[in-house]
Nucleic acid binder design. Structure first.
Length: 870
RNA sequence: GGAGGCUUAGCUCAGCUGGGAGAGCGCACCCUUCACAGGGGUGAUGUCGCAGGUUCGAGUCCUGUAGCCUCCACCA
């Protein structure tokens, strides 16, 4: 079992082969029915590529919760899976084909899908390797894919059900069209950004009167789809024109002039051209007035026959040439440079065209309202951590519009709708029509988020009433970034509510984005992305995990700072060496059964009682997903309390002549290390497993260990005396530094308590003083003694061993000032009647206690000063 | 236009339900066999953005305000 540890933590040696062993042993396979279930489903990564550091962050948070819950005795299911990521993957496969000099249209739908599946398998394998490197405790026996058989069934079932309920419909609407990908997009798949543009002002004439007026547009090419000019009926300038006509400068066609309240009198020229097929507001105007909606563009962004001579020309080229012509005809008044908000496709980044087309939609209002109603009930609501994101979520649902779910792609779930070749009748069903020769299936596929929305329940077997679904649903905690609250969290919420009559998860932990060291978003174009695998190679995955989870507050962005990863490495190295020390000082044959805490030195009891406190805080914060607080507390506890103080103090106990003292220290060291590695295991699974295996232990793996519990019935020892001893050691170090004495300089000391009585110090504690402060304890010390206030008393050192009288007087006067200031503060607070009357009793008592202590310490200082004759 | 976040030590950030300002890195000085020099010890540095208010007491709660950032909506 035990072996010698290297003096330096070597992450590659520690991590080597470990994950495979865990997986093979089945530690991550859920299913122990004797325990309560706890479920996390992984947010399925896209099979478009490899995992970035954001995934590493997201996954580590999930894994920390998973390992913690497993240790707490839950039947933990952490379910893995991947997303087919329709448009994104199709774009990647397209690009690969292009590099081979072919397009998807050359090989056709079927062949293309073969290539896409090939791509999927390739990247799925890479992603699984990356999960392994990250140490994710996933149950691979339950891995799912959004396009596997079960998912296909679930998606069809959902589509057909919603259709039959009237919540899915097909219709002609203005949608966001991506001319590059040649597909419709949903509202949230477009991003608005400020772009430079031009406003073109053109001269129109009223046919009936010849009166001139101005119409402006940013998109002249759409003029081929204009059906009227609109003015506000209340607009004094134009109201007489209503009912008259004008001529479209683009094609010479006569257009009616109509009145509609939509036009803002104050804005622009007050007269607006109306293109129903290429603008959502114009569409509504046309609906109101019963106007036609001619489309003037092709799906690829070129002009169609309506554009006459410009047919086949790119929309921007057409814009320029049309304007040249209008200018030549004398109808261009001016061109103004403007900055305007332009919609871009989230995927291809090309300018999105509002476009009239026939698509499938989900009617959102009833679904959203259902979720919102349940958010009012504590037992049924989804709890957001941090809470503020619930507002973001709710507000979006309150203002939701119908969801365009059809996509003109090949990679995805084909819409289960067929159209009769003869009658045009629509047939929507989970299965194909019985006479397929008479029907043709809808060519389109569903938005990739349509299937992701079913993730928390479909992965568990739904719509079948499987054992897993019944046991693990609703899931416990969802961990994801704020950037996909709308895309994903909200959609899981309403599909979950509608189909399972339940929330898909009880809690959702929202994290931020990871940025580069300068605070910039990581992006391909900037080339500032961090590959988590490279970080792992350099520092080890435990360092990365600890860095990622202890450097931010929930919901807040984080910067990737290499020095902080290094700091994590240093901490692990510290833990490693502390383990080394413990193992070197335990008997070879010691087991956990040999632990005996019945006889303990005050330092043993002191550290164990500190551990008890830490356990309370840590467990409380783990429950609140406050991992940074947990990490910081463990860091400081391990480094300062355990390593800097307890281990150093234990060196004295370990060389004590009394075997029971030695035994107590060894038992304490073992209990401490055992508890520490268990507490840190969720954060750093690899190194804690390595240490666990080398030290006395009870379980086959630390993965099977329980979460530490407080040590009960600690023997009553002098904990205050220990605090005083620690304070004395620090004070001696200070005194030596202040007196320019080498740390090794030997001094004699005596300690007196606050009542002035000499403190009796046992042999073990004397050895500690000797070891940590290089002083001898002399209860009978006599002669000139300089006084130094410490916690719970005063420290005395022969003044001859320190500095001259003048220097000591100076120092004592400084002490006096300090103590008097403290006393001032105490008196100020304690003479405040409001404080005495309203502050909690414990607070008042502790202030009184402090006042007494300061008073006594000051007395000791004053006594010495008068001894020195001031 | 609406919503939210941030502003605390030179840098990056903690600070939970209000009760004497913290961490990591950096900086200064000192210390090497005895777990760790990627270490140990000691120390310096903050009108907690600004202005009001509530309170016995405010970095923490309320109101207003400035700067930076994000999301939502969006008019030719």
């Amino acid at each position: 079992m035990k072996k010698n540890l290297a003096t330096k933590y070597d992450h590659s040696a520690v991590e080597e082969g470990r994950y495979d062993k865990w997986v093979k042993a089945g530690y991550f396979t859920a299913g122990d029915k004797s325990k309560d279930p706890f479920t996390i489903v992984i947010p399925p990564p896209n099979v478009t590529g490899i995992l970035h550091i954001g995934h590493a962050w997201d996954n580590t948070l999930q894994d920390i919760i998973s390992r913690y819950k497993r240790m707490q005795g839950f039947d933990m299911l952490y379910l893995p899976g991947m997303d087919h990521a329709g448009i994104a993957t199709q774009a990647r496969v397209d690009a690969r084909l292009k590099s081979e000099g072919i397009s998807r249209y050359d090989i056709g739908r079927e062949k293309f899908l073969e290539r896409a599946w090939q791509w999927k398998e390739e990247y799925a394998a890479t992603i699984r390797k990356q999960w392994a490197k990250l140490g994710n405790s996933l149950d691979y026996t339950r891995e799912r894919f959004t396009m596997d058989e079960g998912f296909n069934d679930a998606v069809r079932h959902v589509f057909v059900t919603l259709y039959n309920e009237g919540l899915i419909y097909r219709g002609w609407r203005i949608i966001n069209w991506d001319p590059e990908a040649r597909t419709a997009l949903s509202n949230i798949e477009v991003n608005y950004q400020d772009d430079p543009g031009k406003m073109y002002y053109m001269r129109y004439r009223v046919s009936e009167t010849g009166k001139e007026f101005t119409v402006a547009t940013t998109r002249p090419e759409t003029m081929f789809g204009d059906v009227c000019v609109v003015v506000n009926p209340k607009d004094e300038r134009f109201k007489d024109m209503i009912g008259m006509h004008t001529v479209n400068p683009a094609n010479g066609e006569e257009l009616p002039i109509i009145g509609d309240d939509y036009v803002d009198i104050e804005f622009g020229t007050g007269a607006m051209k109306c293109t129903p097929a290429h603008d959502p507001n114009d569409f509504l105007i046309a609906e109101r007035h019963g106007l036609s909606k001619p489309i003037c563009m092709n799906p690829d962004g070129t002009m169609n026959a309506l554009a006459g001579v410009f047919e086949g020309m790119d929309r921007y080229e057409c814009r320029d040439q049309l304007i040249d012509r209008i200018k030549a005809e004398g109808n261009l008044i001016k061109i103004e440079d403007i900055t305007h908000n332009v919609a871009h496709s989230e995927r291809t980044n090309c300018v999105v065209e509002p476009y009239l087309s026939q698509q499938w939609f989900v009617k959102m209002k009833p679904l959203a309202e259902d979720v919102l109603a349940h958010q009012k009930n504590e037992e049924e609501k989804i709890h957001f951590y941090p809470e503020r994101f619930e507002k973001v979520f709710s507000q979006w649902l309150e203002n939701i519009e119908d969801w365009c779910i059809s996509r003109q792609l090949w990679w995805g779930h084909r819409i289960p709708a067929w159209y009769n070749k003869e009658t045009g009748e629509t047939y929507v069903s989970e299965t194909a029509p019985e006479d397929p020769e008479n029907w043709v299936q809808d060519e389109d596929v569903l938005d990739t988020w349509f299937s992701s929305a079913l993730w928390p329940f479909s992965t568990l077997g739904w719509p079948e009433e499987t054992e897993d679904y019944q046991r693990y649903y609703p899931t416990s905690t969802m961990v994801t970034g704020y950037d996909i609250i709308f895309f994903w969290v909200a959609r899981m919420a309403f599909q979950g509510r509608h189909f399972t009559k339940n929330r898909p998860f009880r809690d959702v932990l929202i994290h931020g984005l990871i940025r580069d060291a300068k605070g910039r978003k990581m992006s391909k174009s900037l080339g500032n992305g961090i590959d988590p695998m490279e970080v792992i190679d350099q520092y080890g995955v435990d360092s990365l995990r600890f860095f990622l989870t202890t450097n931010s507050t929930p919901g807040q962005d984080m910067r990737y700072i290499p020095e902080k990863v290094e700091a994590s490495w240093n901490f692990i190295n510290k833990l490693w060496n502390a383990s080394r020390f413990v193992l070197m000082n335990l008997p070879d044959d010691m087991t956990m059964k040999d632990v005996d805490l019945s006889v303990l030195s005050s330092s043993d009891a002191w550290i164990l009682s500190k551990l008890n406190l830490v356990l309370d805080h840590v467990t409380e914060n783990m429950e609140k997903y406050e991992f940074a607080l947990v990490g910081n507390e463990l860091y400081s506890f391990v480094w300062n309390d355990f390593c800097s103080w307890y281990i150093e103090l234990s060196k004295a106990s370990l060389s004590d002549t009394d075997p029971s003292v030695v035994k107590g220290a060894q038992s304490t060291l073992l209990v401490m290390l055992n508890s520490i590695v268990r507490l840190l295991h969720p954060f750093m699974p690899f190194v804690t497993e390595e240490i666990y295996q080398m030290m006395p232990h009870e379980k086959e793996s630390i993965c099977l260990e329980t979460w530490p519990e407080k040590t009960a019935n600690l023997p009553v020892t002098d904990l205050e005396g220990m605090d005083r001893l620690i304070s004395v050691i620090s004070k001696i170090r200070e005194v030596k530094t202040a007196n320019d004495l080498k740390p090794g300089t030997h001094l004699d000391i005596v300690i007196r308590d606050l009542d002035g009585n000499t403190v009796q110090v046992g042999a073990t504690e004397r050895a500690m003083l000797e070891r940590l402060a290089k002083v001898s304890y002399c209860p009978d010390l006599a002669g000139e003694l300089s006084v130094h206030p410490v916690t719970g008393g005063s420290l005395y050192i022969p003044s001859g061993q320190l500095m001259d009288v003048e220097a000591e007087t100076l120092r004592l006067n400084q002490e006096k000032d300090r103590l008097e200031k403290e006393l001032d503060r105490s008196e100020k607070i304690l003479s405040n009647k409001g404080f005495l009357a309203k502050a909690p009793k414990e607070k008042v008592d502790s202030e009184k206690q402090k006042q007494t202590d300061y008073r006594r310490q000051l007395d000791a200082v004053l006594a010495r000063l008068s001894e020195l004759g001031r």
